[in-house]
């Protein structure tokens, strides 16, 4: 592969990782809030506060998933084709869950009927919990490698994806997102609900530490993720992101600075994702057990021209999106006013 093409593909590999990390950071907290719904909200008002705490943002956050998927398609079409068809059933489940969750926001509080609300509350919970779990399972399996054959086709079915390491990834993602969601409620909820969210976050922190350490140890045994790091020890500074995020999260929680705690949690999630992505390089989907069949940036990327044009698009639009989403967060993240509930 000629050098400009290789450089472009490398840049796109990193951007690909960053976009998925952004998705986990931003949709992570609203999936976490949805997962917490049945456990934290004790009455109708509290439920509505939880819906409204993520109300102005969930839709914009989910576009990061569309973008991460779209960029996989645009920059690494072969990897997109094999990743999505190879993970057919879990992906379909993820989509159905997200569909039911998306409409639950809009439908739930529009009709005064307990049964109606119960249906959509269930959709909100399952539609938040399942994606958190499935994303973790899917990415852990990618970290571990899929059994790709010579034509890069995945030979694993959904039950083989539910292996111990895959499930560990699912647990890690769920706990990360729940923590992220609880810290968000510390920012946007008030009164008892807020107290319960803070209590949960404080209790959950050691659990998150243990799970993270176990997952890293498990990764050292079950995956090749550490290969790149051992080869280039300087890369270990990437680990400073998740570790630093985790530590600062506790520090900020201790001094009741909730934006700081939430921000640290964001760094932790993004850092964890980037740690895995950098470990994958240059594979997008490694083949396990036969590394020769891996989908890499060399054999699955788009043409030089497409990568170049897409880079231009990304340089202009990603910062623009971040700018207006930052504006939206700044204006709409005050504590939820119980008199002004839209959802």
């Amino acid at each position: 592969m000629e050098s400009l093409h290789y450089t472009l593909a490398t840049v796109w590999f990193l951007l690909w990782g960053v976009l998925w990390a952004m998705y986990f950071v931003l949709d992570g907290f609203d999936l976490g809030v949805g997962t917490l719904m049945p456990f934290l909200a004790k009455n109708e008002t509290e439920k509505r506060v939880m819906y409204n705490s993520v109300g102005p943002f969930w839709d914009g956050n989910e576009v990061w998933l569309i973008t991460a998927g779209g960029v996989t398609f645009a920059a690494f079409p072969l990897a997109y084709a094999q990743m999505f068809s190879g993970l057919y059933t879990p992906l379909m489940l993820l989509l159905f869950a997200l569909i039911l969750r998306g409409v639950s926001f809009e439908f739930r509080s529009k009709v005064e009927s307990a049964a109606w609300k119960k249906v959509w509350d269930t959709c909100q919970f399952l539609g938040s919990f399942l994606p958190a779990l499935l994303l973790g399972v899917a990415f852990a399996n990618i970290f571990q490698g899929l059994p790709l054959d010579e034509t890069h086709l995945n030979q694993a079915n959904i039950f083989q994806l539910l292996n111990p390491y895959g499930l560990a990834g699912g647990v890690l993602f769920t706990v990360m997102f729940v923590m992220h969601g609880a810290l968000w409620l510390a920012i946007r909820a008030q009164g008892d609900l807020r107290e319960r969210a803070i209590n949960l976050a404080v209790k959950l922190w050691p659990v998150l530490v243990v799970i993270t350490v176990l997952f890293l140890a498990f990764s050292a045994v079950s995956t090749q993720l550490f290969g790149n790091y051992l080869q280039t020890p300087l890369l270990f500074v990437v680990l400073a992101l998740p570790v630093g995020g985790l530590v600062l999260m506790r520090v900020y929680m201790g001094s009741s600075r909730w934006w700081g705690a939430w921000g640290s949690s964001a760094v932790f999630i993004g850092g964890t994702a980037m740690f895995g992505v950098i470990g994958l390089f240059p594979a997008i989907i490694p083949s396990n057990p036969n590394p020769a069949n891996s989908l890499t940036i060399m054999n699955s990327s788009s043409s030089e021209l497409t990568l170049m044009i897409m880079l231009g698009v990304a340089i202009v639009f990603v910062p623009t999106v971040l700018l207006y989403q930052f504006w939206a967060y700044k204006h709409f993240s005050h504590p939820v006013d119980e008199a002004e509930l839209e959802y």
């Binding site: 576009v63 569309i66 973008t67 779209g70 960029v71 398609f73 645009a74 920059a75 079409p77 072969l78 997109y80 084709a81 788009s302 043409s303 497409t306 044009i309 897409m310 698009v313 990304a314 639009f317 990603v318 999106v321």
Partner: peptide, 15 residues
């Protein structure tokens, strides 16, 4: 055709 089609969908999402 992902080289062409995929990039158009990605531009739609970002822009």
């Amino acid at each position: 055709v992902g080289d062409i089609f995929g990039s158009l969908l990605a531009i739609e999402a970002t822009a």
